[in-house]
Design a protein around this nucleic acid. Structure first.
Lengths: 231, 231
DNA sequence: CTCCTTTTGTTGCAAATGCAACAGATTTTT
DNA sequence: AAAAATCTGTTGCATTTGCAACAAAAGGAG
């Protein structure tokens, strides 16, 4: 436990707390670590989660297997990430996904609901801070979802692409940036067909709005892209 | 203020609290009411919100006006609804929408961040309860967003429609139900063209999967619809 | 009841996109 | 370096969907 304090210090949930405070909180609320071998199931679909988890090492994957047996990876959380938080503060809500260890993984479980409800008099300040951190984390996840929704709401592939590129531009603060991941993944994020995406990128290139070579994107005509993105 | 206690008792935020507790909390944290004439702006786009609001009477509308001047109504909140909650717990996030009074409206402002951070020793239990309520509310909004995302993620109009109808069926607990709102609104919710929606409904009807007459929907072949919905 | 407005279904057509197959480029493995 | 695997762009074709125009149905106002 102790050896993870430097790590925990840097997580969103415990940000701004002294190591001693983190340790005290964990003691007061009975956090505990667990080790999972690659492939083992951490949280089963359909079960409620009364604990959230922090990935200490390794990597965790949220997946959903359709009736036809095909697997769909919904999300991926690496070290320092918090998972199961939304779920564990929901009233009687079941997990819509399986959470599986993508590699050998260590997890710290945190009983969030208790942390929000009960007062531990010996670490009141720390608790208040964690509460705010959790809220911030939840709202971040909300806005992230909202952003993806805005993307998918766009009526056409061009518009979706424009929105994604513009929001990326804003985030990076430059008209030129590199997107990690393959075209296939980018297409998935936009919810469109890969080859259709390539086609559209080709067109936009020919029209002089941007240059896209593999992962490298350069926007030449931001105004036009904004027009495409709509509102 | 006092006269609203019966109302507040029934809001999601104050659910489970005695009237006296609500009153004490409001006093401790300086909640206050405000009155807005129809059409006046309650929260401007681009401003941060440090207070959330509860609609006491009337109705509130979140809207967004694109560069081209077209208005888009994002959401509508009637009496008892909480708005600005996600925003007010976000760290330094600006409102993406204008919030406008859709009718003459009374609002109770609640400084949520303070409520989560500071302790009011005289109403500790009530505060703990409100914290849990807020978390529940936030996660509800998260899941609602998630549900809409699942809808829009479906590759085809048929699939989207199937998902919507099936989730409605599950919620109502019956194969037959009425959807409020016009076809136009339904189409907007699915993010598709109205006439395309009507066409698809016609097809599904001819194939014997369902009957749709104006607002009334009856599902005849749930298994087939589930196949259409995919995963 | 009649006129008028709104909502809904229908259809032809054009644009957008998914799909599949293939070739060139890039990366990885042997 | 050669071979194999992966990624990317391109294109033809079929399907889906948006769009616009219209007609029928429903609902409201006088």
């Amino acid at each position: 436990m102790e050896k993870y304090l430097p790590l925990l210090e840097r997580t969103a949930l415990f940000e701004g707390l002294a190591r001693s405070e983190i340790a005290a909180l964990c003691r007061a609320f009975g956090c505990h670590t667990a080790y999972y071998r690659k492939g083992s199931v951490i949280l089963k679909r359909g079960e409620p989660a009364e604990r959230a988890g922090i990935v200490l090492s390794g990597c965790v994957r949220a997946e959903r297997n359709g009736a036809d047996g095909t697997l769909r990876v919904v999300a991926r959380q690496e070290a320092l990430a918090l998972f199961g938080d939304v779920l564990s503060v929901s009233r009687g809500c079941e997990s819509p996904v399986d959470v599986v260890a993508a590699e050998d993984t260590e997890v710290l479980f945190v009983p969030l609901a208790a942390l929000m409800r009960q007062d531990a008099p010996e670490c009141r300040d720390a608790q208040a801070r964690v509460r705010m951190n959790l809220l911030g984390e939840l709202s971040d996840k909300y806005w992230a979802l909202n952003r993806r929704l805005e993307l998918l709401r766009a009526p056409t592939l061009r518009a979706r692409l424009a929105r994604l590129l513009l929001s990326e531009r804003e985030e990076r603060g430059s008209d030129s940036f590199t997107l990690s991941g393959t075209r296939e993944m980018l297409a998935a994020e936009l919810g469109v067909n890969r080859s259709a995406l390539s086609r559209e990128l080709g067109r936009l290139g020919r029209e002089g709005l941007l240059t896209a070579r593999r992962g490298r994107f350069t926007l030449h005509d931001v105004a036009a892209l904004e027009r495409l993105a709509g509102e």
